[in-house]
């Protein structure tokens, strides 16, 4: 089956003006693409711009520069009420904190149906039927419809957030750390739900997370980000088997292995120092200040993305 590209960004940039006339380059020239029915994982440390990228794609933020294509159509232009409504039908988002993203004064059915109510889509009976359908789909049931968010546990709230995202029957869902606030045993429940929904509804995910093992589980492709740029991009299996960029290697090596025998003997690459501030990002390759292999050219010139075979791309002067 031919893969159909559903979402693509081209040299997307999002800069924020900060105090003192500085510019914070949160997303600095990112080109990624997502195929229909697949998942793209975005990994990186906090402050690397992965959430900003997600929010720029869904146009919570207006891009500073660059283009976003959804189904081949440029959606990066000026946003009006009309374009926003159009976009909301196609792209939805699930947030990290299930406690903060649900309005505490609305019932679950009102939360789920808010999009329909705004568009005056369904009659009362239809609305009720549809809400129950969605609740069942995410593993909740009818009796939950008239309760308030505070009556639910974290995992259940995340399910409500997922039901809300599904209500507009979107094609793309941006999952911004959807499981990091949940307990391990609950995380697996939510992950299974996301995978099941993807299969049944042919959804495409952008999956933002810092838990690399979960990203590995759900993603078809993974982009590793550092200070607003993608440093490595490859298919899931290829990246985890054969990481190339020094940052990717260090990042993977920093994850403790849940097995004391392996963990206590394995070789670790410890990254020196701290993530530089994105306001004063280093010149050249942004990773050069912490890279063990940095050469002179790394401090001068930003590396280009190079394809090193089978769609595995690395932005590093070593290749």
């Amino acid at each position: 089956m031919e893969k159909e590209e559903i979402l693509r960004t081209e040299n997307l940039k999002k800069y924020f003006k900060v105090k003192g006339g500085h510019t914070l380059k949160a997303v600095d020239g990112i080109s990624i693409s997502l195929n229909r029915g697949e998942s793209l994982g975005l990994v990186g440390e906090s402050g690397c711009g992965k959430s900003t990228l997600g929010r720029t794609i869904i146009r919570i933020y207006d891009p500073t520069d660059g283009k976003i294509f959804l189904n081949g159509k440029d959606i990066s232009g000026k946003s009006t009420k009309k374009t926003r409504r159009e976009l909301a039908k196609k792209v939805q988002m699930i947030f990290q904190d299930p406690y903060a993203c649900l309005n505490p004064r609305m019932t679950v059915s009102d939360i789920i149906a808010e999009g329909w109510d705004m568009r005056r889509l369904y009659s009362k009976e239809e609305r009720k039927k549809k809400v129950i359908e969605l609740l069942n789909m995410v593993g909740l049931n009818e009796e939950h419809a008239n309760r308030f968010p505070h009556e639910f546990s974290g995992g259940q709230r995340q399910r409500i957030g997922i039901a809300r995202a599904l209500s507009m029957e979107p094609e793309v869902i941006i999952c911004d750390e959807p499981i990091s606030a949940l307990d391990v045993s609950i995380q697996a429940q939510v992950m299974n739900l996301l995978v099941k929904l993807q299969k049944t509804l042919d959804l495409s995910y952008i999956f933002i997370a810092h838990d690399l093992s979960m990203v590995r589980y759900i993603s078809d492709y993974v982009a590793v980000m550092y200070l607003g740029t993608v440093v490595e991009y490859a298919s899931n299996t290829e990246l985890y088997k054969n990481p190339k960029h020094p940052y990717t290697k260090a990042l993977f090596s920093a994850i403790p292995v849940p097995n004391p025998k392996v963990e206590k003997t394995r070789h670790q690459i410890e990254l020196k120092g701290e993530l530089p501030s994105p306001i004063h990002a280093p010149k050249g390759c942004k990773f050069c200040t912490r890279c063990a292999y940095a050469k002179d050219i790394c401090r001068e010139k930003a590396p280009e993305m190079k394809d090193i075979g089978q769609g595995h791309k690395v932005a590093c002067h070593l290749f």
Partner: peptide, 21 residues
């Protein structure tokens, strides 16, 4: 239960995770 809810190393067959219900 908690050990099995971690995604396994080998994910080629995309089996569902085994959460604690």
């Amino acid at each position: 239960g908690i050990m099995q809810s971690i995604p396994p190393e080998d994910i080629s067959n995309k089996e569902p995770l085994k959460p604690i219900l």
